[in-house]
Amino acid sequence: MFTIGCHLSASKGFEAMGKEAIKIKANTFQFFTRNPRGGKAKAIDEEDVKKFLKLAEENNFGRILAHAPYTLNGCSADESIRKFATETMADDLMRMEYVPGNYYNFHPGSHVKQGVDVGIEFITEMLNKILKKEQTTTVLLETMAGKGSEVGRNFEEIKRIIDGVELNEHLGVCLDTCHVYDAGYDIVNDLDGVLDEFDRIIGLDRLKAIHLNDSKNPFESHKDRHEKIGEGSIGNEAISRIINNPRIKDLPFFLETPNDLEGYAKEIKLLKSLRAE
């Protein structure tokens, strides 16, 4: 099954997001757990959740993906920012249990001149405080483009985080096509080579989801600027190879392109036309 969706607004609740996904011919979606700049999360409406779970089952939805706010930085040099990140993620994971068995994605963070070793130490410390043996949500580390002092700019850094977490059976990876291309992984000309490298360093069993984005910038630019599918430096031919690659084609794909709902509908239609079932 081709599991494809996009980023939707959670302001109206789970059922509304599910209906929007169906409207644009999607069978999954991504959403922010709260305002992407941080702040208090909207209260969970249990009746809304029940309606969504029924809707998702009736329409054969794949796993949905919650995205942590951008302000979450578990490896900041500022202790108060690290505390905010820890408390926010802990709250988010508790709330995700209302929709059990899904994914929660976060950017590893920026070490802010402390060095990557310190950054990784803080991230693993945070995850060791938060993860619970009984949780059903899989936490995904997102691959990053490598701008500034980002942690997660290569597969080795992601692997070091995973290895430092005690309950790492609850961890996976979300590969962002724009980010890895900007980071210097040539998914346009050597997709299988990149997947081989991922498998050798991290293990393909850890790859749980794909952020499917084109890139406004050229290869190895370290810029992180998403573009609409087929309108950037990755292009439709490479995108087609990604969604049809036998090693990853059954993963859920989430669009984070600069689009409105109508634009996402057009992209989903395009991607389905490129998909060889």
Rank of each mutant, 00 (worst) to 15 (best):
79 E>R: 12
54 K>Q: 15
81 I>T: 15
101 G>P: 09
79 E>Y: 09
74 G>Q: 07
46 E>K: 14
101 G>E: 08
80 S>N: 14
60 N>C: 12
70 Y>F: 14
106 F>P: 05
44 I>Q: 00
46 E>M: 10
85 A>F: 11
50 K>F: 03
54 K>C: 10
43 A>D: 14
99 V>D: 06
62 G>L: 11
87 E>L: 13
94 M>V: 13
82 R>I: 02
91 D>F: 01
81 I>D: 05
45 D>Q: 04
88 T>M: 07
97 E>F: 06
72 L>Q: 03
60 N>H: 15
46 E>D: 08
43 A>W: 04
51 K>H: 10
103 Y>R: 04
70 Y>V: 03
97 E>P: 06
70 Y>P: 05
56 A>Y: 07
46 E>V: 07
76 S>F: 05
47 E>S: 06
76 S>I: 07
73 N>Y: 04
104 Y>L: 12
55 L>Q: 09
93 L>I: 07
68 A>G: 05
52 F>E: 02
67 H>K: 09
43 A>S: 14
93 L>K: 04
65 L>F: 10
84 F>M: 13
85 A>R: 09
79 E>W: 07
59 N>M: 13
79 E>S: 15
94 M>L: 13
93 L>P: 03
58 E>N: 15
56 A>H: 11
53 L>K: 15
75 C>H: 04
103 Y>A: 01
105 N>M: 08
89 M>W: 00
50 K>N: 08
46 E>S: 10
83 K>N: 14
62 G>S: 12
80 S>L: 11
